Amino acid sequence: MNRRTVLAGVLALTTGLTLAGCSSGGEPELEVAGAYMPQPVSDMAAGFLVVRNSGDAADRLTSVTSPLSDDVTLHKTENRTMREVRSFEVPAGGELELARGGNHIMFMKLKQRPEQGEKVSLELHFEKAGPIRVDVPVKETTHNPKKQ
Score class of each variant (00 low, 15 high):
R83D: 05
P131F: 10
E97D: 06
I132W: 12
D56F: 04
M106H: 12
E97N: 08
P28D: 03
V72I: 05
T62W: 01
G130V: 06
S69F: 04
A35E: 07
G117W: 09
G55S: 12
N2Q: 08
G94N: 10
I132D: 09
G94E: 08
L68E: 00
G26V: 14
G21E: 13
F107L: 03
N79W: 09
Q116D: 05
T62Q: 05
K111D: 06
L124H: 09
S69G: 05
N103R: 09
G34Y: 08
V138W: 06
I105P: 03
V32F: 11
F88A: 00
L19Y: 15
R83K: 13
R133N: 14
A58Y: 08
L19N: 13
S63D: 05
G25H: 07
G26D: 13
A20D: 14
A58F: 06
L110N: 02
R80T: 09
P145M: 10
V10K: 06
L11V: 11
A57R: 15
V90H: 04
V64R: 01
F48M: 07
P114L: 04
R100N: 11
D59K: 02
K109L: 03
I105A: 05
L7D: 10
S69L: 02
S63P: 02
G9E: 07
R4C: 02
S24N: 12
T81Y: 03
T142Q: 12
Q148A: 12
Q148D: 13
D70P: 00
A57M: 09
A8F: 04
S24R: 14
T5R: 15
A92E: 14
G9L: 10
F88S: 00
A46Y: 13
F126K: 00
G93F: 08
V138D: 03
D59E: 06
K147F: 08
R52S: 12
V51H: 04
V136E: 10
N144Y: 07
K139R: 15
S69Q: 05
D70C: 01
P91K: 02
K111F: 04
T18H: 11
T62N: 01
V85K: 11
R4E: 11
T142H: 12
L98G: 01
T5H: 11
E127C: 01
M82F: 07
H143E: 01
P137C: 10
P91W: 01
D59H: 05
M108D: 15
H143I: 01
T62G: 00
S69R: 06
L7V: 12
A57V: 13
E84H: 14
R113S: 13
V64H: 01
A58W: 11
L122S: 05
V134M: 12
L61P: 00
S24C: 10
K128M: 02
H104E: 00
Q148Y: 11
V64C: 02
G26E: 13
R83A: 08
G101L: 02
V41C: 03
M82H: 14
M37V: 15
K109A: 09
L98H: 01
T14D: 09
A35V: 06
V136N: 10
K119P: 04
V10Q: 08
N103C: 10
T81Q: 11
